[in-house]
């Protein structure tokens, strides 16, 4: 107990566990619980969710007693561009078709790095798309359409 400092890393971790545990607990409580000998769909998850909340509380309490490392930099730009990449693929693969959809996915992900220039990004995306189309569609015959109905095919 050197000071009344609050360790951010553990504090947030504890809070996150409590929030997630709370989500599962609330959801599980809405299900049929049953009894310990005749468990319903909600019983086992509710027990787990309560344990998770308990562990979260312990982590939270520990956070007020020891101080650990700092949180460090956060990759905001990365999160903004990397995370949407698979979503883009999921939203467009059936509509646009495999080729344009994969190209877009790789392109979006490319810009997550500050070192990427537009030309390089286009090149990387095009190369990935051609390679993947040849391997997965031409050679392996995966049942994806190269170009989809949104483009009039």
């Amino acid at each position: 107990m050197k000071s009344l400092s609050f360790d951010k890393v553990n504090g947030f971790a504890g809070l996150l566990f409590i929030i997630l545990g709370g989500f599962f607990a609330v959801q599980a409580y809405g299900l049929d619980l049953g009894t310990a000998f005749r468990m319903g769909p909600g019983y086992f998850p509710l027990v787990l969710a309560v344990i998770l909340i308990g562990l979260g509380l312990i982590v939270l309490i520990q956070a007020t007693q020891v101080s650990g490392e700092a949180l460090g930099a956060v990759a905001w730009r990365g999160m903004l561009l990397i995370l949407p990449a698979p979503i883009v693929f999921g939203l467009t693969v059936r509509g646009l078709g495999f080729v344009p959809s994969l190209f877009l996915t790789a392109l979006v992900a490319s810009f997550a790095s500050t070192r990427m220039t537009i030309l390089r990004a286009l090149l990387v995306a095009a190369a990935v798309t051609i390679f993947a189309s040849l391997v997965f569609i031409e050679a392996l015959g995966l049942p994806f359409r190269l170009f989809g109905p949104w483009l009039g095919y």
Partner: peptide
Amino acid sequence: YVLFPIIMAFCSIGVYSVNGNPYDLY
């Protein structure tokens, strides 16, 4: 910076090819 767009593209294909389910990508 060249490697990770490629990684993201392949994992999108890999995840989608298992069940054809876009929600797996989300």
